[in-house]
Design a protein around this nucleic acid. Structure first.
Length: 641
DNA sequence: CCCTTTAAGCTTTTT
DNA sequence: GCTTAAAGGG
């Protein structure tokens, strides 16, 4: 059953580059610098296979893989299962950082001292954080201890920045917090911890994710047995997108595994470090090398982009990142699947955003029709505020019967299990050729019923007829719907059929009623919107899923994704206003945008754009980017003015 | 109530 | 760095 180490070969005939193979078979901590398209998911999947198939990670030991996005965690798990089969993949645990921290907290809640123990029914992110943090402050008005009202704090809690306290200060330091506060800010931090942990008559206990990580870290530090159990479980740890790790998360990582026998493989790219403003550590690579005695190694292949785009990326790296960059960054090679002239990068200059939208629409139409691209092969990127920058384009595309939409608005919604269920149910009810819809709906209801493969067949047969009846009912109702309220009714009937308590027991996140209702309302609104436009339920569902719309998103959202053609709208000062405060991060952001494309990048500049009171756009501050593009000799400039 | 001044949001993820 | 929302003063 086990494969000897020397005989092990990468699964599915995949060829790994030399450095990737070194990491896959390594037995020490590595920091893998993996640029765009270098195949880091594949590297981690192959390493998982190597460890499991050779028995280096032997049963019951497990591999813990930590990502940042649910989607990334899911993709990696699926890849491992595909490469080495379900049985071995059962010992591959792929989680997001927050899911990992939360699972520790939920399992070992009672390992916390009473003061720090959250109510077992805590919510995540109190709704009040969204509605107005100031209202939290008000409940402490006048209760400030008199002796702390000195110096900067004579005005009491009003002199505090509540935003800063909740987002940063509360989780700045490891627990425990100082029980005898020396100033008003410390007092406020303590009061907020108590309120969030325990709640009161009009505040439901609710934690933020950084708080959860701090609590999990505290449990492990205070309970040697829990720590020992964790370390006994995982022999190997993978850390994806390591450039994004926050200080809070790094502390948790150290408490978990520093000084243990776990072999850690961290993968990341400092050229894509765009999350510093949200707390990502600037020096995570150096810290990891030092603390964990990790070796640094670079991947040199770019499997994604066409040769001319790889060349452009290299020029960009060399000129924009300067001496900070490892020399091997300039040795990147492109994949053999391209011919050497492949790859297009153009800068399109417009007088106004109306012309910009027209020209883009014409070209997108051409790409869709004559280049055989599908909507999902194209992506429209913006630095921030997608709606502001792409309003006109969406309108113009619609006038030419093409769809584009802000993917950020809907992607989380569409990925929720309950929404997936509803989509699949409606697709089936309307006889849309969904490939796996029936399996999805059947399995979903089967699980909720607590059925498995040992369940007597008569129950399963009954279940099938129940589903048939549900589909018939949904079909009948859907076809009669002529206002939004009737969709609400249909949703209610479906949820009542599924039973909320059963839903919650399998998807505990839906315990948060406000969030669940929000999901429902958003999807109803979106669905109704699509129906109003199309007046056809099949089309409405297809549009709701977005198969026929071009995704629009921010650069941040696009990280980790790839598209044949990338249209970056608005390489302008007003879009990159932050370039003065955070030049490195904005350079990284532009690099991320550039490197999403497999074959073609179009970058636009419009002299006039309605993004604010001053429509006249400049490119003084982003001049650096234009100079770089021009210098490469690869980019073609087209003037549409 | 209106005008002026100040502060916050922008770019994210996570159950 | 610029826009918009909230707060403060007369």
């Amino acid at each position: 059953m086990l494969i000897p180490k020397e005989q092990w070969k990468p699964a599915d005939g995949i060829e790994l580059e030399k450095n990737a193979e070194i990491v896959v078979k390594s037995n020490c901590n590595y920091l893998v610098i993996a640029g765009p398209g270098s195949g880091k998911t594949e590297l981690l999947a192959q390493r998982a296979c190597f460890l499991l198939q050779t028995g280096i990670c032997y049963s019951p030991k497990r591999i813990l893989a930590i990502s940042y996005k649910k989607e990334a965690a899911k993709n990696l798990a699926e890849r491992v299962q595909k490469r080495c089969g379900q049985k071995l993949a059962n010992r591959f645990v792929s989680l997001t950082f927050d899911a990992f921290a939360k699972s520790l907290l939920d399992r070992f809640l009672y390992g916390l001292p009473e003061v720090y123990r959250p109510d077992v029914n805590y919510d995540i992110n109190p709704s009040v954080l969204r509605e107005g943090k100031r209202s939290i402050l008000l409940r402490f008005e006048g209760k400030e201890p008199k002796h702390l009202l000195t110096g900067d704090y004579v005005d009491g809690i009003h002199s505090l920045s509540i935003e800063n306290i909740i987002n940063k200060k509360m989780t700045d330091k490891k627990l425990p917090f100082n029980n005898e506060p020396n100033n008003l800010e410390e007092w406020m931090i303590n009061e907020l911890w108590k309120l969030f942990l325990k709640g009161d008559k009009d505040f439901k206990p609710a934690l933020t994710f950084p708080m959860i990580s701090r609590l999990a870290e505290y449990i492990l530090r205070e309970n040697p047995f829990v720590l020992k159990a964790l370390r006994a479980t995982y022999s190997h740890v993978f850390l994806d997108e390591f450039q994004d790790i926050t200080g809070v998360q790094y502390d948790l990582l150290k408490t978990c595994f520093l000084g243990s026998n776990a072999v850690i493989t961290a993968v990341g790219d400092n050229k894509q470090r765009i999350m510093e403003w949200a707390g990502a550590l600037r020096n995570s690579f150096e810290l990891f090398e030092k603390d964990f005695n990790a070796q640094r190694i670079n991947l040199l292949m770019n499997h994604r982009s066409a040769p001319r785009l790889v060349e452009l990326q290299k020029v960009f790296i060399k000129e924009a990142f300067g001496e900070k960059i490892d020399l091997s960054d300039l040795k990147i090679e492109n994949s053999k699947k391209w011919s050497k002239d492949d790859g297009i990068c153009e800068v399109w200059i417009f007088n106004d955003y109306i012309k910009e939208a027209q020209i883009l629409s014409e070209n997108i139409k051409k790409w869709l029709n004559s280049e055989d691209l599908s909507h999902r092969d194209i992506c429209v990127l913006v630095k921030q505020r997608p709606s502001k920058y792409t309003n006109m384009l969406i309108k113009t595309l619609a006038e030419n019967s093409m769809n584009a939409r802000d993917e950020g608005e809907v992607s989380d919604l569409l990925n929720e299990e309950i929404i997936q269920f509803i989509i699949n149910l409606f697709s089936l009810a309307l006889n849309i050729n969904g490939n796996n819809s029936y399996t999805f709906v059947y399995d979903f209801i089967k699980i909720l019923n607590g059925y498995d493969d040992d369940t007597p067949e008569r129950f399963l047969i009954k279940l099938e007829s129940e589903i048939t009846e549900l589909l018939r009912f949904a079909n009948e109702k859907l076809l009669k719907i002529d206002n939004q309220k009737q969709i609400v009714e249909l949703y209610k009937i479906i949820i009542r059929y599924l039973k909320m308590d059963r839903l919650i027991s399998y998807f505990p996140q839906y315990r948060n009623t406000a969030w669940f209702n929000d999901l429902m309302n958003k999807s109803i609104k979106l669905l109704w919107n699509e129906f109003e436009i199309t007046n056809n339920w099949s089309k409405a569902i297809t549009n709701f899923i977005g198969i026929n719309s071009i995704p629009i998103m921010t650069i941040h959202k696009s990280k980790g994704l790839e598209y044949d053609t990338v249209v970056f709208i608005g390489l302008e000062d007003s879009a990159f206003w932050s370039i003065k405060n955070q030049p490195e991060q904005d350079t990284c952001a532009f690099f991320v945008a550039l490197s999403r494309a497999k074959r073609r990048v179009i970058i636009t500049f419009s002299k006039y754009r309605d993004v604010g009171a001053n429509p006249c756009q400049t490119a003084e501050n982003v001049k650096k980017f234009y100079e770089l593009l021009a210098k490469s000799g690869i980019v073609e400039y087209r003037d549409f003015m």
